[in-house]
């Protein structure tokens, strides 16, 4: 990868990270309601998994979805407005934090029923196969999803029909407050998936390079008609499950262990190692991110909710 590409990776990581920081501020100020799940700490997983995607590929995921939307090229202002519940949001304020969606960037949405989106990924992939296209579907979900029935139904069908899917399991080790060893009879989620006869990978999800390398192979296989792959990305969320979770079930030592593996300093160090680069160049990227998010918050703040007269809009195709 050349320097410009790596600086783009750094930008995407900072965008995903800083968006969540700003969301937390706005949430605390009462600008948004409901549940709000932050992606902080897991950025390398999504940036790496999506690095080799084409614009016409599909991405679908769980309710921890801000990063997916932004990294697909979604407008931060429309995302922030959605969180504010405003009609200027990507779903007119009807979806909120857990349900971002944007057809124009082939982001097929965030879903708040654990594993509920897995069979939707199967269907999207079926449409690709049916039309003889070479697009792929990347489906993100957490470790908790691997204990749901419909998850196993979907993995089975993905392999059975040899569909172009990359299953990306963000193993952040906790399903809300219940750890993987306390919820999964098989601790290795990759081994659990392997019975569905597809390539499975375990990867350090705190490392962009490892993540993108594995994803590149899985995406290429899917594109070439070789069927699905499964990636278990071992990662960590720095915050609780949602804004209302103080995460008392984790030790400080454990959190520190993972923070030492923070993907952002790692990408920065890698760039510095390979290229002549001044600190100001990183600062410029940080400033660009800040500016874009200032604009996003301004855009969201200027918006307003849909009028109640439009409550029933979009329930049916008329």
């Amino acid at each position: 990868m050349n320097k410009a590409e790596l600086m783009e990776v750094y930008y995407l990581m900072q965008l995903a990270r800083t968006f969540e920081t700003r969301v937390a501020e706005q949430y605390t100020r009462g600008k948004m309601g409901g549940f709000c799940h932050l992606y902080t700490g897991e950025e390398a997983v999504a940036v790496g998994a999506m690095w080799h995607l084409r614009d016409d590929d599909y991405v679908i995921g769980s309710y921890r979805d801000h990063a997916y939307y932004l990294l697909r090229g979604g407008d931060p202002g429309k995302a922030m407005a959605e969180l504010f519940g405003h009609k200027e949001g990507c779903c007119k304020g009807k979806g909120g934090s857990m349900h971002l969606f944007d057809w124009d960037i082939n982001f097929l949405g965030g879903y708040a029923i654990v594993a509920g989106m897995c069979p939707l990924a199967v269907g999207a992939a079926k449409s690709i196969q049916y039309r003889g296209e070479d697009r792929v579907v990347v489906c993100f979900f957490g470790d908790g999803a691997t204990n749901q029935g419909v998850y196993h139904e979907a993995l089975n069908m993905g392999s059975l029909y040899e569909l172009p899917i990359v299953w990306v399991c963000e193993n952040n080790h906790y399903a809300i407050g219940t750890s993987v060893p306390r919820s999964s009879a098989r601790e290795s989620l990759a081994r659990k998936a392997r019975s569905y006869e597809m390539p499975t990978y375990v990867v350090d999800g705190m490392d962009f390079f490892k993540m993108q390398s594995v994803a590149e192979r899985a995406i290429a296989d899917a594109r070439a008609g070789k069927g699905p792959s499964f990636i278990e990305a071992q990662c960590y969320r720095y915050r609780g499950h949602s804004m209302s979770d103080p995460a008392t079930y984790r030790s400080e030592e454990e959190v520190e262990y993972w923070k030492k593996r923070d993907p952002i300093p790692r990408i920065k160090a890698a760039i510095k190692h390979d290229f002549e680069v001044e600190e100001e160049e990183f600062e410029e990227v940080d400033a660009r991110v800040r500016r874009e998010l200032d604009e996003a918050i301004e855009f969201a703040s200027e918006g307003s909710e849909l009028p109640v007269e439009r409550l029933y809009e979009d329930l049916y195709v008329e």
Partner: peptide, 9 residues
């Protein structure tokens, strides 16, 4: 779910 995903696309 598969039907829904295929319909979406």
């Amino acid at each position: 779910g598969m039907a829904t995903g295929a319909a979406m696309c």
